[in-house]
Nucleic acid binder design. Sequence first.
DNA 1: AAGTTAAATAACCGAATGGTTCAATGCCAA
DNA 2: TTGGCATTGAACCATTCGGTTATTTAACTT
Lengths: 123, 123
Amino acid sequence: MPKMTPDRLDHIFSALADPTRRAILARLALGTTSVSELAEPFQMSGPAVTKHLKVLERAGLIIRGREAQFRPCTLDAAPLKEATDWLERYRRFWEESFDRLEEYLQEVQTNGEKDVRGSSRDK
Amino acid sequence: MPKMTPDRLDHIFSALADPTRRAILARLALGTTSVSELAEPFQMSGPAVTKHLKVLERAGLIIRGREAQFRPCTLDAAPLKEATDWLERYRRFWEESFDRLEEYLQEVQTNGEKDVRGSSRDK
DNA sequence: AAGTTAAATAACCGAATGGTTCAATGCCAA
DNA sequence: TTGGCATTGAACCATTCGGTTATTTAACTT
């Protein structure tokens, strides 16, 4: 019931789980820029963008600077390498997945449905 | 202003953002198994595991079957390919990151008076 | 000194998460 | 048929998330 120490991957993956944040990263791939320029494509208040930036910062995906009244954001893609490194361990599964899954689904479809939720009546 | 249609990547990345679910995937990499065997390593109630499985299912990462009173889970790693495909677009950034980031941090720490507005375009 | 602009904070809100317990369902076995 | 096991469902709870508006801080501009 206490919370476990959040893994770095938790922060990285959950930062990537939001389309706004992925779009921000895409913009930052074009170069360092200010918060208001980052906010511009979204119809969203400034503070909302600030919060997204905090999430990205917590994940280590951006580095913030200070220049006059601006707080420029710079992409730091290093954590994305951690994410891919984790995903790499599963590569063989999606490469083999045709065989394995087809085999499994074949077996299941002979006597079952793909339905899972909903009230399951006896058959 | 309400919620935008959730991207597939949203579901995939947020499924991966939890250590319990990553552990479940790791176990499933060893082969199809039942819910209670999946639950065994965790100090967590059954329904909690069921909820995690629903999240994984929503992300398309597992396929559920029926076998007597068991509901076996099988890994489907295909969505992980989508995730890596997305991440691949940033590979060059973490490969170059030494140069770019060092350069940036150097620049910021020595003299913080470079213009950041419209860094990649003329204003 | 006053005003403008960039951004962050604070306080708030509704919805989603991650967990719980207790009850129901489906399936097998004695 | 009765009982037990595997699993899900329902209701509940605390926390987090993603957004809002209003206020505040900081730096430039006039």
